[in-house]
Simulated scan of single mutants.
Amino acid sequence: MSAPDLAPRRPLGGIVTVWIAAAIAGLVVGFFVPSDLRSAWTLVALGGAIILSFIVQLWYGQTQRFIQRTSLSILGALIVLGIISAGFRVAALIPA
């Protein structure tokens, strides 16, 4: 006999956590980094989001659909950082 699985954690919380962390990192980069260094620091923020996604999904403790959850976290972080970066790029074009 095998023990029944307890109610597993919902994977959506871990995925959205990485997206929120990427949004915060993108806003920090956008507001506090000079415009000529923003693209480099955005890549650093994406690298941090990739590492965070692996940490969160490993903490989740389920082997089923690990690759899908991790890739969804990373893809969402990439999209979030891209939107924020594009927003700051457009804002830089508008004269103050």
Rank of each mutant, 00 (worst) to 15 (best):
L58I: 07
L43D: 03
S39F: 13
T63F: 12
L75F: 15
Y60L: 15
V44Y: 01
T70D: 00
F54T: 13
L78H: 03
W41I: 00
G48V: 02
W59Q: 05
G61E: 08
G47H: 01
I55C: 10
A45P: 08
S53Y: 11
G48H: 01
T70M: 11
L72I: 10
L37C: 08
F66M: 07
T70L: 04
L78V: 12
S73E: 02
I50G: 11
S39P: 02
A40Y: 09
F54C: 10
L75W: 01
L43V: 09
V44L: 12
F66R: 13
D36N: 06
I79P: 01
R38M: 07
L46E: 00
I51E: 05
Y60C: 08
I67M: 12
R69E: 06
I67T: 13
I74M: 10
L43S: 10
L43T: 08
S71L: 15
I51D: 09
S35P: 00
V56M: 12
I55R: 03
S71A: 15
F66G: 01
R38H: 00
R69Q: 10
Q57H: 14
V44R: 06
L58G: 11
L58D: 13
Q62C: 09
W59E: 07
L46F: 12
L37F: 07
A45G: 02
R65I: 04
A49T: 00
Y60I: 11
R69G: 05
L52G: 07
R69A: 13
I79S: 04
L58W: 14
I79Q: 01
G61P: 12
F54M: 09
V44H: 01
I51H: 10
L72G: 14
L78E: 07
I55S: 04
V56P: 04
L78T: 15
G76C: 03
L75I: 15
A77D: 07
